[in-house]
Computed example of a mutant assay.
Amino acid sequence: MNFPKIQLVMSDIDGTILNDQHLADENLSESIQYLKEKEIPFVLASARSPLGMFPLAEELDIGRNPIVCYNGALILEGTQNSYRTINEHLVEQEEAKLVLNGIKKYFPQVSINLYSGKQWLTDKWDKWVDIEASITNETPKEHNLQTLLLEENVSIHKLLLVEEAEIIQELYEFLQSLELKYSSFYLSKDNYLELTAKEVSKEKALTEVAKHYGISLAHTMAIGDNFNDIPMLALAGVGVAMGNAPQKVKESAEVVTCNNNEHGASQAIRDYVL
């Protein structure tokens, strides 16, 4: 198979460059340094917030390359102490109010988390917040979100709704009944339901970052491991699925690399870029 010359690499984080212990592929930093020498940007793309991504970007020494936060709702360029917004897509506030009111009325047990820029706000501190905080090493602020949205104009990049899988499935069906015009939602885990603006996707983020650099999509590589990565993998010049990805994800990619515990991401960069 003939592969195009790669000029941009975009990679998912969890399950891709992080192993099952949430540690970074130990060979990746070296691969990124080789990419730097060839002036090939390495871009992180994740559902995580900026605070959940900047430390990893610093650990991997990607420099001031963009980071794609909230699956593309917010794209930043720079470092944690000095950055600028390249692009953002916000949840329409009236639709956010409608969703929150419905949850409070019919699903009061659901953990509601609102992400605005670097801020993580939660309606109540519960076990789900503890779990998410332990994964991302972030600490949220507790706030009455209904009151907040009534009183202030808030930039909402994402709502994260968490409960047991059975309840989240019922909530998913409820949100479908609302026929939201400007928002979309999806299950990122069996018990994680995420809501963003309709324009948000890693696929669109890849397009926006490639445009930012003036690079053709045909000369991009995307690496991922999960269902929400499929459109990105399909759009890139070379889509790389991790060995730990579900079969449907593997079928959407040009190539399948090793799994996330066997340095699959760095192996793919060495094999198909360097």
Rank of each mutant, 00 (worst) to 15 (best):
V200W: 02
K248V: 11
V255I: 12
A165F: 04
I86A: 00
L180K: 11
P41G: 02
D229N: 03
V209M: 06
M53R: 11
I112K: 03
M10L: 15
A245I: 04
K97W: 01
M1R: 14
S116M: 06
E166T: 15
V249E: 07
A133H: 02
K211I: 14
E163N: 15
G52T: 06
A197Y: 00
I32M: 08
Y192D: 04
G239R: 04
K38M: 14
V200R: 02
V256L: 11
K36I: 06
G237D: 08
P231L: 06
E262V: 00
R64D: 12
H212F: 14
Y70V: 08
L193I: 08
R270Y: 11
H89Y: 13
L145V: 04
G264F: 03
F174A: 15
Y34R: 15
A205K: 03
E152M: 10
Y34F: 10
L171I: 13
A47C: 09
L235P: 06
G72P: 11
R270G: 06
K127R: 13
L44A: 03
V209W: 00
G63M: 11
T136P: 05
M1K: 14
E251L: 12
S31T: 14
K181M: 12
S11D: 09
I168K: 01
D271M: 13
S177F: 11
I6G: 05
I17H: 07
S266I: 07
P140M: 04
L274Y: 10
L180S: 11
L35N: 04
V240R: 01
L178H: 12
Y83Q: 09
Q146D: 14
I135Q: 03
T16Y: 05
S11V: 07
Q119D: 15
K127Q: 15
L28H: 08
S111H: 02
S134T: 05
I223L: 10
S11F: 08
G117C: 06
K189S: 12
E58Y: 12
Y182S: 13
L148C: 07
V162T: 13
V99A: 07
G63N: 07
M1S: 15
G63Q: 08
N144L: 09
Y172R: 12
D12F: 07
K141I: 05
E138R: 11
E251G: 00
W128S: 08
V43D: 05
D130W: 00
P50A: 01
L150K: 15
N2F: 10
Q119G: 02
G72V: 08
M221F: 08
D20A: 09
V9S: 01
L149S: 07
W120Q: 03
L90P: 09
S31L: 07
D20V: 10
A57F: 07
S46A: 06
S49K: 09
L145K: 04
P50I: 03
Q176C: 14
M53H: 02
S177G: 14
E208T: 14
T196E: 05
N191R: 01
I230V: 14
K202S: 04
S184H: 14
I168N: 04
G264V: 06
D126W: 00
K202P: 06
V99E: 02
